[in-house]
Computed example of a mutant assay.
Amino acid sequence: MKSVFVINDNSVEARSVAEAALMFAKSINAGLLIGSKVIRSESVELSLVSGTEDDEHHIDEHLFHYLNVLNQYTEGDETLIREVDITDLDSNSVASFINQNNITMVMVPADHELACNAMAKQLDLQVVLNKISVPMLVLPANWSYKSIQRLTYITDLRWCRTDVLGYLSKLTHPNKTELFIGHVAASGIPDMSTDFAKQVFFEVAKGCGNYERLNFHHIKSNDIATVADVLVHAMKNDALVLINHSQHYSYFIGKNLSLNQPQLINVPLLLYPN
């Protein structure tokens, strides 16, 4: 069984991402694999919150046990949850572990201490992303899991990757997600006319296979604030897709996967390996 991988550094952000990862794993019939930087060996007793309307919520001080209880009381078939100790692994070793363990996606929080705190300072998520062969989903702060109904891959149509579209088509097909290509002309290159952009899009779509729900949007600006406003607010995307090390990636992502302007992006970013 393929698994969704999350890194647990015992932070509030990691716990939030793990909850979202469990919901996502259940939606695609995958397992959940937790890579813990510090594993507590003691047994933690679970207790129900009784006497309220929220009886399906549980109190648990340990993420692994908490997720197993949450797994039982949320919609969908129970998924397999496993935990491994990655305390002594550096960035290269974590990437190798991901590549060797049938992992289909890595999920991490944006702009949190995982990239720099004392417990995990040897782990550089950008290095991990550079070396893995699966996408990394970066979740913004305070994001609550929901089914993704509209997803846009940001690229210049002239360099659009059909392998990425094929992956996204398979990923989004079960939920009938609307999939868009958000065309933003690469910096320093003249933009295409609307008619020519449509022609290029149809040629790209032909090579995608299952493209019934594929469309494109022509964003005639390179200003990140304008692009973000169009994609997030005007188009109401639930998530955005970027290719690692692409020019468009540098518009949104800074060092160590910190968003350049986090106030502009309140949706997850799916970072596809280059």
Rank of each mutant, 00 (worst) to 15 (best):
I34D: 00
L165G: 06
L137S: 02
F180S: 08
T226I: 13
I98T: 02
I181A: 07
P268Y: 02
V84H: 04
C160R: 05
V94G: 00
M119R: 14
D54E: 11
L137F: 09
D90T: 04
I7E: 01
V84L: 06
L32Q: 08
I103A: 10
G166W: 00
T155P: 05
E61S: 11
D223H: 05
V128N: 01
N102D: 13
A205H: 01
V227I: 14
K26V: 13
S144A: 12
H233M: 02
L33R: 10
A30E: 12
K2A: 06
G76I: 04
R15S: 13
S169V: 12
D85Q: 08
I86K: 03
I243Q: 06
E19Q: 13
I181V: 14
L114N: 06
D191P: 02
A115V: 15
D238K: 02
S47K: 13
N10W: 02
A234Q: 11
L271A: 05
L179H: 07
K131F: 04
A95I: 05
G35V: 07
Y272L: 10
D54A: 15
L89F: 14
H248Q: 14
S93L: 06
F202R: 10
H245L: 11
K37G: 02
Q261T: 13
L259T: 03
T104V: 14
K37T: 03
V127R: 08
V267F: 01
L67A: 04
H183G: 06
D163R: 07
S93M: 09
R40M: 07
L46E: 09
Q263K: 12
F5V: 08
S50V: 15
L33G: 01
E61A: 09
F97H: 14
L46F: 13
I265K: 04
N237H: 03
L70E: 05
N175Y: 14
L151G: 00
K170W: 07
S43Y: 12
A225D: 14
D191V: 06
C208T: 15
L123M: 09
S246K: 09
S16M: 09
S27Y: 01
H233N: 15
N215C: 04
N266H: 09
V204R: 07
L63V: 02
I103Q: 05
K220S: 08
S96R: 13
D85K: 09
N215A: 15
L48S: 11
L22F: 07
S16L: 07
L125E: 00
S27Q: 09
S93W: 01
S187H: 07
N71A: 11
K176A: 10
N244R: 11
Q100N: 14
Y167Q: 13
H217K: 10
A110D: 00
V6T: 12
Q263R: 13
G31Y: 05
I7A: 05
C208W: 05
N29L: 08
V232R: 03
G31F: 04
L171F: 13
S27D: 02
N266V: 07
Q149S: 12
K121W: 08
T52F: 15
